[in-house]
Design a binder for these strands. Structure first.
Lengths: 195, 195, 195, 195
DNA sequence: AATGAATGAGCATTCATTCAT
DNA sequence: TATGAATGAATGCTCATTCAT
């Protein structure tokens, strides 16, 4: 009964398209700039389609952020699977890569949307759960390469650097970011069995 | 203390009141919820007064964020002056205090406004300069107690933890935050003279 | 009593349920607040069911009012049958009962729906016929106890009092209503055979 | 300071025009059909002007009904002043005139708006006070020509007849209405000192 | 016969901004 | 200088109605 590969006239498809368009709108104009109309235009569907599938603006926002977080999670899992082992030095370099994507690239948009998610969660309790999931996913990934405390420190620093690089006219240089990460990821003999 | 003789019917005073009201509105409803009307109501001045002194909404936002950043800078400078020396351990504890203010307190509002600032700077180039100043001020303060790289790492982590604690249903515990900061602030013998 | 064999999965039954739900919606939110969606929710049927059986909103309204009027007619006939004779004094008291039902009771809802009917008939010629029928039924019932002219006067006054009691913050007291009805129902020797 | 005869660029004038247009819209399409847009079009003012002066739809409705009631009150007072004395028979005839205005005339519109007022008051407590005032004014006028109980009975009947004549395809004839009113207004020797 | 999906029109309301005074 | 008035554009949302299945 459930079609194997639903293609034509598929309502689920349309819902996906609208959610994807919402994500793009948030990336470009922020949660503040997301409107049913903007999404409809971006998705190329009639206005009614957006309000029909997502009755309220919050539904639209939640769908977009959910999508973004899920996609990132999948990407992150694949990333980790491809790199079973990393020295702290390698790790620092690769994370710097992740946090300093080329301007205008899709990874940049991902970062922007993530940041919007956190801000939106500030006032919309519904979204907090998604933000926490995102956070937890990142920490879990980092924990593959270091102890939990260091992972927590690195996770926090990554978020801070990301925020700073997005909001700054002169974002931190790659060298700066690598130094920060190296400072955190390099095992500290002075700290033995912290928890 | 303040200006020499501006007292009664002082236009500068009114401008201040409007800016202060804008700050409060942003703390409560976000940049998204800031409107000339909301500010006028909050400041108890006629609508025309807000548009007269701050022609556009962006002017209002900039004034509010400028004010917030300046106040924070003064507070930070005083803080540092009062504590000329700190061990890494003391430092970690006190920073955890700073990043985990009681819910609903004025420091919380300050954090919220800061976050709004970074978000707003994302789309409003005018604000980036203010965000950078804020950033630099924090780093300078941290550098009083540790080397520049560690200060940069701690600054990034602070921002990340702050963001996480604001957007989360279950914010990080004091112990978690202290652990993160200790992990970063404790001198690492393995790293000699990194830049 | 009702139809012979329509029992399970009876389309007529569903139509009834929808009409009954429409009546309830009108009682609660008025004709103005009646929508296919509200009726579907109230009846617990899919939206499509309401538009299928009652293509337009006016059909829904007509069905609801028709139902209300019919039910009232049956009630009225039974009432009259149970009371073959009444003195003018008894009549006044009982009519006051009828026009001053307890707030929130089902008779109140009946009155509200009746008023909505008259209002709706003002702009929907289709409904006028129903309103007239309702009117005629009331007059016929009253005519069992008095002459036609007095019945007409009492009928008009009843409607006026009902309207007033529904729309007023301080509805007329029972004493007031009884006085009005007594004034009309008490035979007037000064008027001989008017018609 | 208050201009003697405000004419040009008078904001009060515009408010009046909008309220008058609201009245006309209610007369033509009912409270249900009143929208800011319809009023703006009817008054020939921009949409913003209606929402500026009457922030909510309820404000618009209240203004229109208030206006209608006030105008009617003035008319009624003048009417009574012109006719210091009336025999019951004269009174019945003149009231029949009042309740059976020619179709499409301005008195008809007045009646329609009054009825809408009562219906609207049913769900909008704010309006009840206006409806009561209207009611009281009518009773006071009637009381100039007869005792209070008879006035109350006549007032109720008038409202009932009015409702019936508006909602009916074949409204009551002048003879019918006169008969009803005569039945009520003719002093009843059988009732001595009622109160 | 029955219904979920779809859509275009419309609505109340809010607002930044302009302008006359 | 200061401000109430004004307005046009936009927003979130609702809904009657149509239609494909």
């Amino acid at each position: 009964m459930a079609a194997a590969e639903p293609r034509r006239r598929d309502p689920a498809r349309r819902i996906e398209e609208i959610a994807a368009a919402s994500e793009r709108v948030i990336a470009e104009r922020g949660v503040e700039g997301l409107t049913h109309r903007a999404v409809a235009a971006e998705a190329g569907v009639p206005l009614g389609a957006t309000t029909y599938h997502f009755a309220t603006k919050d539904d639209l926002i939640a769908a977009a952020l959910r999508r973004s977080v899920d996609r990132f999670a999948a990407y992150l899992d694949a990333w980790v699977e491809r790199r079973p082992e990393l020295t702290p030095e390698q790790h620092a370099v690769l994370l710097a890569d992740a946090v300093l994507p080329p301007l205008g690239g899709p990874e940049r948009a991902q970062q922007v949307v993530d940041l919007e998610l956190y801000l939106a969660a500030l006032r919309r309790p519904t979204l907090r759960h998604i933000a926490e999931e995102h956070q937890a996913h990142i920490l879990r990934a980092l924990a593959h390469y270091t102890d939990p405390d260091t992972a927590a420190a690195a996770g926090a620093a990554l978020m801070g650097v990301s925020l700073r690089s997005l909001a700054s006219e002169s974002p931190p240089s790659r060298a700066e970011v690598e130094t920060i990460l190296r400072r955190i990821l390099t095992p500290n003999p002075a700290l033995t069995g912290t928890s």
